[in-house]
Design a protein around this nucleic acid. Structure first.
Lengths: 161, 161
DNA sequence: GCAAGATTAGCAATAAACTTGCGCAGATCA
DNA sequence: TGATCTGCGCAAGTTTATTGCTAATCTTGC
C-alpha cells in the first residue's frame, strides 16, 4: 500500500482528470502504457483509488448555496447516532457529515438552491429526528473546493526516484 | 441548460461511477449509445459536468483527520480577501474554503494525518498571513461524504417523462 | 392542416483506448 | 554464480468511444 514517486504522480493526475488516457499518463510519468496501467489497477484493488466520479457545477444544477449546520444533542449513545446517520443518509442535500469534538457534536454541509429551500430542509429534518440545538451558518461564497487530497503525507518506501 | 429526466438519470449514474460505458448508461436510461453519448457531451460543453476525477481513500493516503478552521478578521476588503485566497490556494491540505456570513468570516476544511501535522499547518498558515482570530474544530469521524449533488432542484423544461 | 425546419433517436463503420500474454532486464539473496 | 523476484515494455486482441449518415418525431408559421 506504500506509494512511490511515480504512484503519487499518477494519483495527482487522476485526481485532476480521470479521463486522461493511460498512455498519456504513462508518458507524463515516464512509463509505458502497460506498467502504468498495472499500477493504476493495483491502486484500485488496494482501495487507494476508491472510485471515479463526475463532478458537477453546483450552480448549474441549482444548488449554489452551501449551509453548514451544527448540531448539539443530549443523546450521546451509539443507537441514537446510528438513527441520526440513517436519517441524514436519506437527504441528498447533505453532502458531508461529521462527528465532532468540542462544543458541537455534529457538523454537516448542506447544499440547496436558496434560503427558502434550506428552511424546507430544516423543517423536514427536525420532523424526522429530535435535535437539542441546531445552528446554521450560511456560506456567502465558495472560494476553494477540491476533491483532490494532498499526497505529501502518503506512506513511502522508495523515496529515491 | 435545462435538464430533463433522462439527463438527470445520466448525471445520477455518472456522479456515482464515471467509468460506466456509455452503452450501459444508455441501456439504463432507455437510450441507445449515440444519443446518450451526445447528451453527455452537451452537458460537458455546457459545464454542467465540470470534470471527472478519481476519488481517493483519505486514510490510505494518510490524511484521515479532518479539521474545520474558523477564521475571523478585521480586514474586510477585497484586496485582503484575494491575498488570503492566494495563500490558501498554496495549501493542498485545505480542500474547501468558504466566505461565511455570521460571526465567522471564513471557514475551511483541512485534511491532515494527525494533530501534529495540523499544528505544523497552523504555524505555516499564520506565518504567511495575519489572522485576527482562528479556531479549530476536530472531526472525530466522517459519517457521510459524497461528491454527488442532489438533482432534485435542477431546472426542468419537460417534466412529463 | 400541412410543409419546412429543427431536434432527437438509431445504425454502422471507424478510431481510440483498454487489457492481456509473453519475454526481457535489473535487483536480491543464498 | 545462478535462482528467483519484481517491474518494464512490446505486440496482439478486445472493448469502448466517436463520427457520418438516415429516419422519425416534434415545432413553427402560414
Amino acid at each position: 500500500m506504500a506509494l512511490d514517486k511515480i504512484d503519487r504522480k499518477i494519483l495527482t493526475l487522476l485526481q485532476k482528470d480521470a479521463t486522461m488516457p493511460v498512455a498519456e499518463i504513462g508518458r507524463k510519468v515516464g512509463l509505458s502504457t502497460t506498467p502504468c496501467w498495472r499500477r493504476i489497477q493495483k491502486m484500485e484493488e488496494d482501495g487507494v483509488i476508491q472510485r471515479r466520479v463526475a463532478v458537477l457545477d453546483p450552480a448549474k444544477v441549482n444548488v449554489g448555496v452551501t449551509v453548514f449546520v451544527s448540531v448539539k444533542t443530549n443523546e450521546h449513545n451509539d443507537t441514537w447516532m446510528r438513527k441520526f446517520s440513517g436519517v441524514i443518509d436519506e437527504f441528498p442535500e447533505v453532502v458531508e457529515f461529521y462527528r465532532m469534538s468540542g462544543d458541537v457534536d455534529y457538523l454537516m454541509r448542506v447544499v440547496v438552491p436558496d434560503i427558502g429551500a434550506y428552511d424546507a430542509f430544516y423543517k423536514k429534518l427536525i420532523s424526522k429526528i429530535n435535535l437539542t440545538d441546531v445552528s446554521s451558518a450560511f456560506a456567502m461564497g465558495q472560494i476553494k473546493y477540491t476533491t483532490a487530497l494532498p499526497l505529501d503525507f502518503a506512506i513511502v518506501v522508495d523515496d529515491d526516484k
